[in-house]
Design a protein around this nucleic acid. Structure first.
Length: 575
RNA sequence: GACUCGCUAGCUCAGCUGGUAGAGCACAUCCCUUUUAAGGAUGGGGUCUUGGGUUCGAACCCCAAGCGGGUCACCA
């Protein structure tokens, strides 16, 4: 293992501490009675209360001035300056705690506990005068340390910040140490979830848990992750949605159920997509989608208030106002609003022509519903910045939603669009088991025609519906998407602690010696490499007949005077 | 998956038309008792992501690979 100069230095310091009888990783607890934030906020008005404090944190900077030093420690609430005076922490003749331990063996990143009192320096900074210092954890890796200044408005300016996104996502713990606003983002995400949980719980709905491993995946149109259960010897899928299970619970007699669910979709990744993501789904009996719109407005407005204390949230260049009521358009109205074209009476042929006229890419496989959806997606969605409800979707896209009672070809469904992206999806749930069976069968047809996201038929779900599900309103809200908006984050990776990444293994290229090791004759190894085989694994994966053909050709081409090999010889190398 | 940009010290970045690598911070040694992006002096630290190729010579040019970012596609 290769260690950098600074890592070696820190390992030595760890040794030295141990040799001095100081445990760099003590077991006993260190009691803390105050936080950095508490001191900064309350010291001025309540000085007597800060005469005897105990605080712990990570050492973030060190300024040594001979017999006295300033440093900063950072706890979960922020940074605070400490003042360390040699003769105060070492009142006796023995000055090693200051001269050796503090000055030499402690590094930025180490975790220490201190006891002392709060005071204000000549320059006016509230600081802690250290009386006792305890090493709590020695850090062996140098932090990507950043220096920062705070101007009079309290704005923190950071120099040489740790910005490499790859390292930030792979080593989130480091990101959180040196970029404290990251911790704040995730705190807001938790506030958001708590706010919703409280809101829904308060209305009397029951928070539940349903299977993540499902024998059939359903409730959405997406490709699943597939896995296998050994004991039952059966295929299981990671859920793409929990909709069908929550509806079974409505059949069972609950009036309202909700679940904060991790769902998994085996699809592309982007700044809006991670293979696993979080949704809250809610189902309420005896309600319809109109009622659900009111609930969404109320809940999201409250979330904004709980997080920001206002309904206005800055997102990129825009100020988004979640105050009720939100604008409501039917999908037809929205398209007419943004394109000036009324498509409500058009047939498929006219829709296709309209799409082409609007430069919306179409293909022959698209039916009426898909065409409408494409026009909306291309021409309207991105322009909807303020929260807006879009209602009444084409039936083809919504196999689980109830048909609209008066509008032919549409269902009672809405989405809320905000900052140009969908944040929720809801409908009056289809509870007619015969209709539901037909819709599933239409999906099966799509599947047969090659749509690998078409829904599969869930016989048990239909059985549940046949017992009777009351009229029900259902809702799904993308927690990650909403968190992005509420925290002004540009990428889903910024609201996931550990976004999905490829493993960080380096490209390992085999050498000539490795090929010889694997059984390739010495004189042939360079030829194999020339044939484009880079690793031993690649060699094993290659068909021996193909490789034999290839290297024999190369032998001629490179005019090599080496003994020929037979396909059987090559087979030896590749097995 | 496609296109595109990037990868140089622990971090942030320079590095000209190809001539064997630099800065600031961090680190080490020394000086300094209220400093604050503390300061002063000295010093160490690099398989320039990996593998090939072109060349007398490659961080730089060419080909491949790895990982990441952005945009697009599928999707929430």
């Amino acid at each position: 293992m290769h260690l950098s100069e600074q890592e070696i230095e820190r390992r030595k310091s760890r040794e030295e501490l141990t040799n001095m009888g100081i445990n760099p990783y003590p077991a006993e607890s260190f009691d803390v009675n105050v936080s950095a934030q508490d001191i900064k906020q309350n010291y001025e008005s309540d000085k007597l209360n800060y005469k005897n404090i105990s605080i712990a944190g990570r050492l973030m900077s060190k300024r040594i001035m001979g017999k006295a030093s300033f440093a900063e420690i950072q706890d979960s609430t922020g940074r605070i300056q400490i003042y360390v005076n040699r003769d105060e922490i070492c009142p006796d003749e023995d000055k090693t705690l200051y001269n050796t331990v503090f000055k030499k063996l402690l590094d930025i990143g180490d975790i220490i506990g201190i006891k002392g009192y709060v005071f204000t320096t000549q320059v006016g900074e509230i600081s802690i005068h250290v009386k006792e210092l305890t090493v709590l954890t020695k850090s062996l890796r140098p932090l990507p340390i950043t220096k920062e200044t705070t101007d009079e408005q309290g704005n923190v300016k950071r120099y040489d910040a740790f910005t490499d996104s790859e390292q930030r996502y792979r080593q989130r713990y480091v990101d959180m140490i040196v970029n404290p606003e990251v911790r704040n983002t995730f705190k807001k995400r938790t506030q958001l979830v708590n706010s919703m949980r409280y809101f829904l719980g308060n209305k009397g709905y029951l928070e539940v848990e349903t299977p993540i491993l499902q024998p059939l995946y359903g409730g959405a149109a997406a490709r699943p992750f597939k896995t296998h259960h050994n004991t039952l010897d059966m295929t299981l899928y990671l859920r793409i949605a929990n909709e069908l299970y929550l509806k079974r619970l409505i059949v069972g007699g609950y009036d309202g159920v909700f679940e904060f669910a991790k769902d998994f979709r085996n699809e592309g990744m982007s700044r809006f997509h991670n293979p696993e993501f979080t949704q809250v789904e809610l189902y309420v009996a005896y309600k319809d989608y109109e009622w659900m719109m009111d609930l969404v407005e109320e809940m999201v407005e409250k979330v904004a208030m709980d997080i920001h204390g206002t309904t206005e949230v800055k997102v990129g260049e825009n100020i988004i106002n979640f105050q009720r009521p939100w604008k409501r358009y039917t999908m037809y109205e929205a398209i007419e609003h943004f394109t000036g074209i009324d498509i409500s009476e058009m047939n498929e042929e006219e829709l296709r022509k309209t799409a082409e006229k609007l430069h919306v890419p179409v293909d022959d496989s698209m039916g009426k519903g898909k065409l409408i959806d494409e026009i909306f997606g291309e021409k309207c969605e991105a322009q909807l910045i303020q929260p807006t409800f879009i209602t009444d979707y084409p039936i083809e896209m919504s196999p689980l939603a109830k048909k609209h009672p008066t509008k032919e070809g549409l269902v009672e469904r809405f989405e809320a669009i905000c900052n140009g992206k969908e944040i929720c999806n809801a409908f009056s749930e289809l509870n007619d088991p015969i209709d539901q069976r037909q819709r599933f069968e239409e999906q099966l047809e799509l599947g047969k025609r090659g749509d690998d996201e078409a829904m599969v038929l869930d016989e048990d779900f239909l059985r549940a519906l046949e017992y009777g599900m009351p009229p029900t309103a259902g809702l799904g809200i993308g927690i990650d998407r909403l968190s992005m908006i509420m925290t002004n984050s540009n990428s889903i990776q910024d609201v996931l602690f550990f976004p999905q990444m490829k493993p960080e293994k380096k490209a390992k290229v085999a050498t000539e010696a490795d090929f010889v090791e694997a059984g390739v004759p010495k004189e042939w190894a360079p030829v194999v490499m020339e044939a484009g085989i880079r690793t031993i694994e690649e060699l094993k994966d290659t068909k021996h007949t193909k490789l034999h053909h290839q290297i024999s050709g190369l032998k001629k081409k490179m005019k090599l005077d080496i003994p020929s090999v037979s396909p059987e010889d090559v087979k030896e190398w590749t097995s």
